[in-house]
């Protein structure tokens, strides 16, 4: 009876991400690290922190999608991750908007 079960797992089991994809993501992360170090030595004014965070977000997205399998996960899992990021950004964004706007009108 074990044979039909393993067939069933072959057909509908969890998606197995191949080592090739892991290797490509790994190389992309190393390139991203190099880019962020190089970018920090360039005089880009207000763009320095934006580029640094942009590269970090891109690297984190690669890790979540491929190393953490979210690209191949169910909609429930995708929605869980997105809702978590949304809540995090809402909390940080509202805290920062308070600190940025607190002194408005007092000058």
């Amino acid at each position: 009876m074990s044979h039909p079960v393993s067939d069933h797992e072959e057909a509908h089991g969890p998606h197995i991400v191949s080592p090739k994809i892991y290797l490509l993501v790994f190389l992309a992360l190393l390139i991203g690290t190099t880019l962020t170090v190089v970018a920090s030595y360039l005089e880009l004014g207000p763009w320095n922190p934006i580029i640094a965070l942009g590269i970090a977000v891109a690297k984190a997205t690669l890790v979540v999608l491929f190393f953490m399998h979210i690209k191949y996960s169910s909609k429930l899992m995708k929605l869980t991750v997105v809702s978590g990021i949304f809540t995090f950004l809402a909390l940080v964004g509202m805290s920062m908007s308070d600190y940025i706007s607190r002194a408005w009108g007092s000058f």
Binding site: L29, T36, S40, L44, A52, K59, A60, V64, M68
Partner: peptide, 25 residues
């Protein structure tokens, strides 16, 4: 556990530019 380890990696991905790379120019 893989998810946990990758999460710890992501934290460092943000810590590195924010702590080490402020206006190096």
């Amino acid at each position: 556990f893989g998810l946990y380890w990758h999460f710890v990696d992501i934290v460092w991905i943000f810590l590195f530019p924010l702590l080490y790379l402020i206006s190096r120019h």
